[in-house]
């Protein structure tokens, strides 16, 4: 399970440019998160698990898809850790894998309604696919 783990930790660090070691475990990110109710791993847990090298577990986490990238955690973190940037890095690691896509062009029509702005679709493709 732990083989190639260092590689994953390094990749997360490289993509995010974030150092999870600066976290002091205050939980202000989790306190600020508007998507907390929908997440299986709260933002502070996420940071803590990156620090512990548990990237594989994080790649299975539903939090990746629930994060709103609203940067409330980034704004309020007293240590400059940027939890949402870390989450984004792990999400990128998932969708960059073979079969990592979470959305395909085929399912788009049924997700659409009359008023949906183009921006929503572009965002969705950015979040869910390469």
């Amino acid at each position: 399970m732990h083989q190639n783990n260092n590689y994953l930790v390094e990749t997360a660090a490289q993509i995010s440019g974030v150092n999870p070691k600066s976290c002091m475990k205050c939980g202000k990110c989790t306190a600020s998160c508007p998507a907390f109710d929908d997440m299986d791993l709260s933002p502070h847990m996420f940071v803590s698990m990156v620090e512990a090298g548990r990237i594989r577990e994080l790649m299975e986490s539903t939090s990746l898809w629930k994060c709103l990238s609203c940067f409330a955690c980034v704004e309020r973190c007293p240590r400059g850790v940027e939890p949402s940037t870390l989450m984004e890095a792990v999400r990128l690691m998932v969708i960059r894998k073979q079969g990592g896509h979470r959305i395909s062009a085929d399912e788009i029509p049924e997700l659409l309604d009359k008023r949906i702005p183009q921006q929503a679709l572009t965002s969705a493709f950015r979040k869910y696919s390469r």
Binding site: W65, L68, I116, A120, A124
Partner: peptide, 8 residues
Amino acid sequence: GGYITVKE
């Protein structure tokens, strides 16, 4: 929450 409006 607009960012995830398509799938969530």
